[in-house]
């Protein structure tokens, strides 16, 4: 009995945390997404009245969700965000995997130094790092002046406000989130397996392809999710570095909330975004637990 009580006490804090900071806000946003826009403070109509402790006179409807289907703007924003997040994750994986591999294979002394270098950027605000990138990319910035001085280019390159700026900034910002889980799986990899594989006549490439890579799959999945999920909702990078034509759901959400002051519609955009992210994740989790 005491044992069981202890167990409950241990799991209570995380549950309370999730309830307070995830579930309740979630229902607040969901409730607003069912309401109607109105000129007041806050700018939406309540969807029910309180009868003592019980809600009555429920008036919410799905009108806002239907509106999202009517205008192709929203679907295109979602698709474009998913595309951006997908390719950023791929580039992060391509850049991050070799780095994680080298760190995992390095001597313990080097390993700590290298890991520190990966984590170091997190000590400054990501906003400052983005401003630093803006300084590098701008027409009179570091990259353009250097290239002009060496004589590789004769006219400054347009780097800011382009797709390149957004992709590279997302990759640079999120790269540590890819490297760390990859490193932790690669580092646990049993070297005897590689030895065995080479004893059995596999070339180094075959060993990597057939032993290392499959065994590091959990790290790949974790890293990709850690990059992909925040990248989908990314607002700051496309807003500061993207061209005007870049349609991303974060910016669309901003327009709904700030320019149209339409909190109900903005809330339904957010709900759909959550669904877009959560449903594939649950599917992935189910697929994984089925395999285990």
């Amino acid at each position: 009995m005491a044992q069981r009580l202890k167990r409950y006490l241990v799991i209570l804090p995380p549950f309370a945390w999730l309830l307070l900071f995830f579930l309740i806000p979630f229902f607040v946003v969901f409730q607003v997404s069912l309401a109607d826009l109105r000129l007041q403070r806050p700018p939406f109509s309540p969807i029910f009245d309180w009868d003592g402790w019980w809600p009555t006179n429920f008036t919410g409807d799905l009108e806002n969700y239907w509106f999202l289907l009517e205008d192709s703007l929203y679907i295109n924003s979602y698709l474009n965000s998913l595309k951006t997040a997908f390719f950023s994750s791929l580039v992060c994986l391509a850049v991050g995997y070799p780095i994680a591999y080298v760190i995992a294979r390095a001597t313990p002394n080097w390993r700590n130094t290298l890991l520190l270098l990966v984590i170091l950027p997190f000590w400054t605000s990501s906003l400052l790092r983005i401003y630093a990138l803006i300084g590098m990319y701008s027409t009179n910035g570091f990259i353009n002046t250097s290239l002009l001085n060496i004589g590789i280019i004769s006219e400054p390159l347009q780097l800011m406000n382009t797709d390149f700026a957004v992709y590279s900034a997302i990759v640079i910002t999120y790269l540590p989130l890819m490297i760390l889980p990859l490193y932790s799986t690669l580092q646990k990899l049993d070297e005897d397996l590689l030895e065995a594989s080479s004893d059995l006549g596999a070339s180094p490439f075959q060993s990597f392809w057939q032993v290392t890579l499959p065994l590091s799959a959990p790290g790949i999945v974790a890293g990709c999710l850690l990059v992909f999920i925040p990248a989908v909702g990314e607002y700051v990078i496309p807003a500061l570095m993207g061209g005007p034509g870049q349609l991303m759901i974060g910016k669309t959400l901003w327009t709904e909330y700030f320019n149209n002051r339409d909190w109900p519609l903005a809330s339904s955009v957010a709900m759909i975004m959550l669904a877009v992210l959560v449903i594939p994740m649950m599917w992935l989790r189910n697929a994984q637990s089925a395999r285990d």
Partner: peptide, 18 residues
């Protein structure tokens, strides 16, 4: 609200082509 949505929607169309 209606005019606001219309002008902002046109603005998004200008900026993004969508």
């Amino acid at each position: 609200a209606r005019a606001d949505r219309a002008i902002n929607r046109e603005w998004t169309r200008v900026k993004t082509g969508q």
